[in-house]
């Protein structure tokens, strides 16, 4: 992943978080800037909530897990450069957090849900590799999105 050029990456925005009516999970809808490509990523309820809270900017009385990560980064002069969805295997997505610490760029492995929750809290860009976008799961994606409706998506439209 370290060798992936920025040119191979597609920048994504978090478009919304929706409950999956079929399972007890949530779907994070990522879209590219031209709204041409959609990348849905299934996450757990807690992870979905962590992303929704960041999107809505809801302050909590106590820091949530990703607020704590941000707090660590702030205190230790770690700058989050970007997060990248790097791979998909058996419908499981993998991600990396790119950061600068002590003048050196590093990458740290992460689940996409953590990476996105952290990116939203640190105003860091979210990318996916062209390769993952091509291989993204499900020929029935359109059917799913149709089923979910576009009305629900409006809430977090950015």
């Amino acid at each position: 992943m370290e060798h992936t050029e920025l040119a191979d990456l597609v920048k994504l925005k978090v478009h919304g978080v929706l409950p999956d009516p079929n399972t007890e999970t949530q779907i994070v809808i990522l879209k590219d800037e031209q709204h041409a490509d959609i990348l849905p990523i299934w996450v757990g309820t807690a992870e979905g909530t962590a992303i929704k809270m960041a999107m809505e900017g809801i302050p909590t009385p106590r820091p949530m897990s990703h607020d704590l990560i941000r707090s660590f980064a702030d205190h230790l002069n770690i700058k989050i450069l970007r997060v990248v969805v790097t791979d998909v295997k058996n419908n499981t997505y993998y991600a990396a957090v790119h950061l600068v610490a002590r003048g050196e760029e590093r990458t740290v492995d992460s689940r996409p849900s953590d990476a996105i929750a952290l990116a939203l809290r640190t105003n860091s860009p979210i990318y996916v590799t062209q390769d993952v976008l091509k291989r993204r799961g499900g020929g029935n994606l359109d059917a799913l999105l149709e089923k979910l409706g576009t009305k629900n998506l409006g809430k977090y439209e950015v």
Partner: peptide
């Protein structure tokens, strides 16, 4: 876990600066 969980990420971040 097959993928790092939230607190594993937290630890990786701290390790990256030897905190």
């Amino acid at each position: 876990a097959p993928r790092p969980m939230t607190h594993d990420l937290m630890k990786s971040l701290l390790d990256s600066v030897e905190a």
